[in-house]
Amino acid sequence: MAGRVLVVTSGKGGVGKTTTTANIGAGLALLGRKVCLIDADIGLRNLDVVLGLENRIVYDLTDVVEGNCRVRQALIKDKRTDNLYLLPAAQTKEKEAVAPEQMKALCDELREDFEYVIVDCPAGIERGFKNAIAGADEAIIVTTPEVAAVRDADRIIGLLEASELYEPRLIINRIRPQMVRKGDMMGIEDIIEILAIKLLGVVPDDETIIVSTNKGEPVVMDKRSRAGQAYNNIVRRIEGLDVPFMSLEEEGLLTRLKRALLGHS
């Protein structure tokens, strides 16, 4: 078996890369896929707490790369789903301890056993970014409807292209449809037009994410959550299914009406 290696990246920090990685991983696992998540944010490990696995870590990514243990020993099995595993980042070591070639070799080793290997990329465009994308075949870019986040996403698209990772797909996180309709927030069409890349999904700004993150449970497992539904749709699109976008992902009726009446956007 040769699984797919995906990297979740954004450039800017704080837009929701780790939450996105956790939810995509958990969502794919719920569909029965065998998934391994890699936290590539060395020194600022977070994916473990988002998944509620922080108490189970023995070995980490750097230990694997340095040969202190075998990959299997470092993998932590998720407590809720059978086929989700985490390879945590080292918290006390330097980013330089891992090289892009080593990451690539690791991803290739893991894809023999897993259908999906998903790498959570650190913020920035330095070594950590280069490590995270080294072994990936596909990239997912996370952004929020803010000037700074979209600007950084654009930079990342360029850097990915330079590393021969073409056609990344975009997740727009924390959108507030009401604000978009009032003209107080950039909308999906605005961002897609500017970045000119394919949309993978849109996640609404939703309090249930905060609640589930507090508990260390991916929101994708919460059937009643709008954000959870959005992640579920994203996961099925990754699987190649044609999933229509939720109503919040469309522009408001009024915007369309106004456009029809006034003839401009």
Partner: peptide
């Protein structure tokens, strides 16, 4: 009413978009 009479170009949404296009 605001949605109808507020001119699009004045909204912070349009301002953000224009600033972004220029910076890019």
């Amino acid at each position: 009413l605001r949605q109808f009479w507020n001119r699009d170009s004045d909204s912070s949404r349009q301002i953000a978009k224009k600033r972004l296009q220029l910076v890019l």
